[in-house]
Design a protein around this nucleic acid. Structure first.
Lengths: 205, 205
DNA sequence: TGTACATCAGTGAACGCGCGTTCACTGATGTAC
DNA sequence: TGTACATCAGTGAACGCGCGTTCACTGATGTAC
């Protein structure tokens, strides 16, 4: 359908998607403006009608990524339903699922070397994603006796770090760190043990 | 001292060090052959007497990095002395210390997108580093009742993932994940809680 | 110790390439009358 | 509905640059006699 003639219709988005594909396959520096334009069936000069330069295209990808990420985490958390613990674990799974399903976004967000201060939108999207994680940690830690409760930010940071580490080391072709366990398995057991250390007793698995 | 005239003396190493410095400052793609040569006070063609190309220089950096890394981890572990638990925690600190003190190596090893199969040396150095982590996990888990003991590889993977995640997210200028806690603090508490989850009771801190 | 020679780590100039970006342009689209 | 015109998203050619790499060379170093 649509006006695929002289005017593209939605080139901005098409360029973002082309670049995401390239980035997912070839790493953060593995895309070029020219190649992204080519994949969108457009001349090499066209992207500059929509982005001031390469940097801005990367920021746009990261921004879209953080938005999507925040959406998925929020959806997984569902305001802590049915229980803070299950919701918390759902967030962990969502983290991993996002990295798996949206590798291009993930790379743009975490491996492209951009700063979240690159744009107001990016900073906002990034903060929103972070807040879901912090909230999940906060709600869950309310169920702990106050004297065993670590600071919420710290709790969230631990879980984020483990999730991120598993993604980087075991969910990609990273240096020789192939493990006999799937990323999902590693995350589930890792978070499980960690939560037990905080005093959450879980049913046996 | 030394023969700084026509012949450099140890250009290979000088190039590696120049590239490490550049990479530490500008990220994995942030060095060029020409720039590394320049920093070593040598013409742009000189590096090709020591490396077949750019890729080989990266591999050399990563290789040196994994060797150094393995040395530091082994030194920290000291065959499990004075106790498996303290030795284990020392390994965690060594992980972080390495990333902090040798950012160039760290980037080459984990963020440059090379495969450990790129060379036999690299694969060996990488495996050696990994083995220290696995051994530390193994020795420590011997102190657990067999029915609460996770597979050694899994144990090691959890700890590696958390360490790596903390480095990537909180020990660098990564996207907006600044935390009120230092990486060392995060790692110490994170591993502490995890170990408690496994059944190691620690003295209060 | 002195000379002849092989070796080999450097030089400097040049290459081809691809990339990011610019610029004058063109033709499709939407709008005012 | 038809025409005139402003707008604006595209084109295509060209630019300058820097990078990785090559090549014929040169001069320092080590070794054999």
């Amino acid at each position: 359908m649509s006006k695929r003639g002289y005017h593209h219709g939605n080139l901005r988005q098409a360029l973002i998607e082309a670049a995401l594909k390239l980035i997912a396959e070839n790493g953060p520096r593995g895309f070029t403006m020219a190649e992204a334009a080519k994949q969108a069936n457009v001349s090499a000069a066209a992207p500059y009608r929509h982005f001031t330069g390469r940097e801005e295209l990367i920021v746009a990808m990261a921004c879209e990524g953080f938005d999507l990420f925040a959406d998925l985490l929020e959806y997984a958390y569902r305001d802590g339903q049915p229980s803070p613990l299950t919701a918390f674990e759902a967030v962990g799974h969502a983290y991993l699922a996002f990295a798996r399903k949206h590798p291009g976004h993930y790379v743009a967000m975490f491996e492209s070397g951009i700063s979240p201060d690159a744009s107001r939108d990016l900073a906002a999207a990034c903060a929103r994603a972070n807040q879901v994680l912090v909230r999940a940690a906060h709600d869950l830690s309310q169920h702990l006796p106050a004297d065993r409760r670590p600071p919420t930010e710290m709790f969230a940071a631990h879980v984020t770090a483990m999730s991120h580490g598993i993604v980087e080391l075991y969910a990609r072709g990273a240096p020789g760190k192939r493990s006999p366990f799937s990323p999902e398995e590693l995350l589930e057991t890792g978070i499980g043990i960690y939560l037990r250390g905080l005093g959450f007793l879980e049913p046996d698995r």
